[in-house]
Each structure stands twice: as C-alpha cells, then as structure tokens.
C-alpha cells in the first residue's frame, strides 16, 4: 500500500515534466504525421533532423542570436534536411525509406560539425531560453510550472492552426492528393515530385523546430538525442490515431487528428514514466518504445484477421459438417498457419 502511494506521488510529481516532454515530442510527431499519414512516405530523416534543429538552435543561442530567431533557424535547418531526402527521392529515384536513412546518417556528421563536440550545454542560467525543464519541477508551484506548460501548448496549437490552414489551401490539397493517389494527381496536373519534396521539407522543418525547443528544455544538445526519434514520433501518431477513432469516431477530423497526435505523445511519456516508476531501468526505454509501436500497429491487423481468418473458417467448417453427415477434417495443421 505504501509502495502504491509512493508511486502515485512520484507520478504526480513528474506529471508537469512529462506533459511538457509530451508536448515537445508532440510537435515532432505532428511533423511525422505529415509524411507518414498524409504523404504516405515513411521518412526516417527525422532522427537526424531533430538533432540538426537542436544543434543549430544551441549554437546560435550560445553565439548570442536571439532565441526566437535561433528557433526559426532550427525550423529552416530541418527544412533543408527534408529537402535532401526529397531531392534524393524525386531526382535520383532513391526509394523513400532509403533516402531518409541516407539523410539521417549524413546528418550525424553534419550535426557533429555544427556542434563541434558530441554534447553542447545551453544553460538556462546563462541564456534567456524559451522553456526549461528546470521550471517544470513540481516543487516550484503552479505559478512557475503552469506558464511553462502553457507556452509549449501554445506552440502545438499554433502549429496545428497553421497546418489546418495549409492543408486546406489549393497547394495543401495537392500534397494530400499525392499521398493518396499519385497517378490521379498527375492526371489532375499535379507535379507529384514537387509536392512530395514540399511535404518532406515542411515535415522536417517542424521536426527541426521540435529539436530547437527540445534542446532548450533539456539544457543541452547531444549528438544522440535523435536516436529512435522516429519510433517515438510514430508511437505518438499511432496512439493518437487509435485513441481519436475510439473517442471521436466519425468526428475525427483533421484538426482532431493533429491534436490527438500531440495527445498520443503525452500519453507515451506518461506511460513511460509509469514504467520507470515501477522500477524498470531506463535502459529498457527504447525497447519499450519499439514494443508500444509494435502493439499499436499490430492491433488493427489482428482485429481484422480475427474477423476473418483461416482458423475461424476451419472452426466454422467443422461446426457445419459435424452437423451433417460428412465427417469433419479438422485441419489443425492449416488452422495454425493463419
């Protein structure tokens, strides 16, 4: 009983921090949503571009560039990363996944060059940072913590609003059409290569911006901070998607989809904190992320096959034939192979 109270206490204490983390990663996940869901392009550049955004932001702040401008440039640096992936795909015919991997690995070097070393501290004591994890410690009280969380929430809301507008424009339509049916899009006069590149640029720009916020929140840029980012992004997208469908059903519109992506990220970090609190060492975090994504990807598939599977067909067939005169061939060997 005491253990449970301690756990609850810990959970409550870490709540503001986890929500803040969730919102920052929610921004990244919204970037992933653009490629993964709208463009139907599994873009793995993300692991690199989030670090690029962080590195650019950190170096600029350290060199006295105003924080908002530094964040703007983390967006731009992400855009450039997306441009690389997009051009490799559109002009050189390199398959999407591979183009993303190439960008990601290339960015590792680029990021090291930008940062000059593997870890670059950006202390909130020295610089007027936009957000910091120092200010989300529960002990500081609501007066300090709440504005910090609201700032992050505002970032998410602004991004959702801009994307709502953009994907409602003529150009936004072409990106949605390209992701859905490239042949049809070309027949309607859409340059699908161009729209693919534009979507990748936009997506990675948002991811870069997330990196810029993340580096301030954490207080340092690290060359490995983006490792596995795509998996966390996907986890958020998928958790948000499943949750949104369940809660909103038919009213699960575009704005709700983006909002639920951010909610998915928050839930991811809440669950992660529970896992940590009950004593699973943090080494297992990545394993945990992979398992979460696996489960959420598998559920729709398994639910589908549960409705119609060879196993079920065999069972039904046994029922029918055992009622009649034909002796039932149970077909156990086959039934297991569905």
């Amino acid at each position: 009983m005491d253990v449970l109270v301690t756990w609850l206490n810990q959970f409550a204490n870490s709540l503001p921090g986890n929500i803040s983390q969730g919102l920052i990663w929610g921004v990244l996940a919204i970037g992933v949503y653009i490629t993964y869901k709208i463009l139907d392009f599994p873009d793995l550049s993300v692991d690199g571009s989030v670090t690029t955004g962080a590195a650019v932001c950190a170096v600029m702040i350290i060199n006295g560039v105003p924080v908002p401008l530094a964040m703007f440039f983390s967006f731009i640096s992400g855009c450039l990363a997306g441009l690389c992936t997009g051009l490799m795909n559109a002009l050189l015919g390199i398959p999407g996944i591979l183009a993303g991997i190439l960008t990601q690995i290339a960015l590792y070097s680029v990021n090291l060059v930008i940062m000059g070393k593997a870890n670059l501290p950006v202390s909130v004591d020295k610089y007027p940072l936009f957000v910091s994890s120092r200010h989300t410690a529960t002990a500081l009280g609501v007066g300090t913590v709440l504005p910090e969380v609201l700032k992050l929430l505002a970032v998410v809301v602004v991004i959702i609003a801009v994307l709502y507008w953009f994907f409602g424009t003529e150009y936004g339509f072409t990106i949605r059409a390209t992701g859905c049916n490239a042949n049809m899009s070309r027949a309607q006069g859409i340059n699908t290569k161009k729209s693919t590149v534009v979507a990748l640029v936009l997506s990675n720009g948002i991811v870069g911006l997330a990196g810029g916020v993340m580096v301030q929140y954490q207080g340092s840029a690290d060359i490995n901070m983006g490792r596995g980012a795509i998996v966390i992004g996907l986890a958020a997208v998928i958790i948000g998607d499943v949750l949104g469908r369940v809660i909103l059903g038919k009213r699960f519109n575009f704005v709700a989809r983006l909002a639920f992506t951010a909610v998915g990220a928050i839930i991811y970090f809440l669950v992660l904190s529970i896992v940590t609190i009950i004593g699973i060492p943090s080494e297992y975090n990545k394993l945990f992320s992979a398992v979460i994504v696996m489960i959420f990807l598998a559920v729709p598939y398994l639910r589908n096959t549960a409705k119609t599977s060879f196993r079920r067909a065999a069972r039904n067939s046994v029922k029918m034939t055992s009622a009649g005169e034909i002796s039932a061939e149970k077909g156990e060997g086959n039934a297991d192979a569905d």
């Binding site: 424009t169 003529e170 072409t174 899009s185 309607q188």
Partner: peptide, 13 residues
C-alpha cells in the same frame, strides 16, 4: 482538385 486541373496551385483556399 479537378476544377484546378492544369492550373498553378496557390495558397488560396
């Protein structure tokens, strides 16, 4: 989409 076939797409609705 079809109504704008062959036209440049802008940032209008």
């Amino acid at each position: 989409l079809a109504k704008r076939r062959g036209q440049p797409r802008s940032l209008k609705w």
